[in-house]
Write a protein that binds this DNA or RNA. Sequence first.
DNA 1: TCATGAGACGGACTGTAGTCCGCTAAGCCT
DNA 2: AGGCTTAGCGGACTACAGTCCGTCTCATGA
Lengths: 220, 220
Amino acid sequence: MNNSTGPQSASQRGLPVVGEPRPERADARRNRLRVLEAADRLFTEHGVKHVSLDAIAAEAGVGKGTVFRRFGDRAGLAVALLDEREQELQAKILTGPPPLGPGAPPLTRVTAFLDAYLDLLDRHVELFMDSENASDGARYRIGSYHLWHRHLSHLIEAAHPTLDADYTAHALLAPLAADLHHALRTQGFPLDRLKSGLHAVAASLLPVSAADPTVDDGNE
Amino acid sequence: MNNSTGPQSASQRGLPVVGEPRPERADARRNRLRVLEAADRLFTEHGVKHVSLDAIAAEAGVGKGTVFRRFGDRAGLAVALLDEREQELQAKILTGPPPLGPGAPPLTRVTAFLDAYLDLLDRHVELFMDSENASDGARYRIGSYHLWHRHLSHLIEAAHPTLDADYTAHALLAPLAADLHHALRTQGFPLDRLKSGLHAVAASLLPVSAADPTVDDGNE
DNA sequence: TCATGAGACGGACTGTAGTCCGCTAAGCCT
DNA sequence: AGGCTTAGCGGACTACAGTCCGTCTCATGA
């Protein structure tokens, strides 16, 4: 899944394509890459929330309109920057080896996903905050959110068919909100505590199957 | 608990006070009430997110600076408007009759709280969204969030001492984020489904005590 | 090669959040 | 009552997100 805005996609990634309406124009591609590089650079240097889109446009040597047409808004730009990192996790989930990938029992896969996501989130909190909060309800419109949701939903359904898997998946993703993560980390919660806390929640929701290893209860 | 910004409080609410540094000046009080009324009126009339703070200041007949000095930012104004409604719930929890108030077994009280909060949230989603998202991490700095958190944390601790009550309380509050609630309702989830979904999560986390009535599993 | 038009470009423009600071007046003290 | 201190006032100002639209360029096919 590719969350970047704009008519790019398979063709830009070297895949053979047939029905795609129109390939990305050369200048468009050049500018897209310039903007992403500039944003990456400035974000790293000054911290995500101290960089304005004007500054990014200037650094990239393009007009402001170009940035907005391409990425929609601040959230869209953050999403595009996170895309690559998230795709890695998405690939591991869909086709990688267990416990993230298919093959392991549900609770094990859920736990592995939560850990992997928390690691990713922790490494890029600021960017995640931008991507989730820059516009109202942005988090729930992003493609990757839907993918995480579908993944959890299937696992929950498999492990416990009488639960409302759809809702429960949302509830399990809710504590992964970038905002909350940032607040807790700032309050001094170590990452491991957040992990084991969430493990305990997941474990209590899903029955342990015979194949699941024993799961820590999340005590301190 | 009173979340409004500014030197108001007990003395304005008719309580006898001794050590409060300085009472609110008459003009300050007058303007504070004007702003709240104006905001309430405009929000109701045009929808929260279509009303600017300039417009509120104008409607209230005060300068923009006055609004900001008093409420800090957009989120602060929303918090002040929600304050009264939330205080009602807070009172019921602290001193009201069971199941919200003290006396009922933990899981029952948790469930009652979740229901009551969801009702409140559903009635004022837009205002809640403003109060939680208008500034980064605002939700976790609001006084009332801490109160809800402490409440759940105590109940969790009582029902299941080996859990990390502090973290688990955050995790249980996470699905109550205004943003998520709005997104799910917009997607067509009925309120009752959100309630029973959360009940199921709470019930699986906390052991049912002898005194708890049987709890519905949240199935569809 | 060149005419053509879809689509990209970019910067001026708008609207809003939030800041600042010189001015005003409330309330206390004599 | 009158002066004085101090909190409150308010609007001009800044900075930023996001829009708009006239201009320019790439890619195509004749």
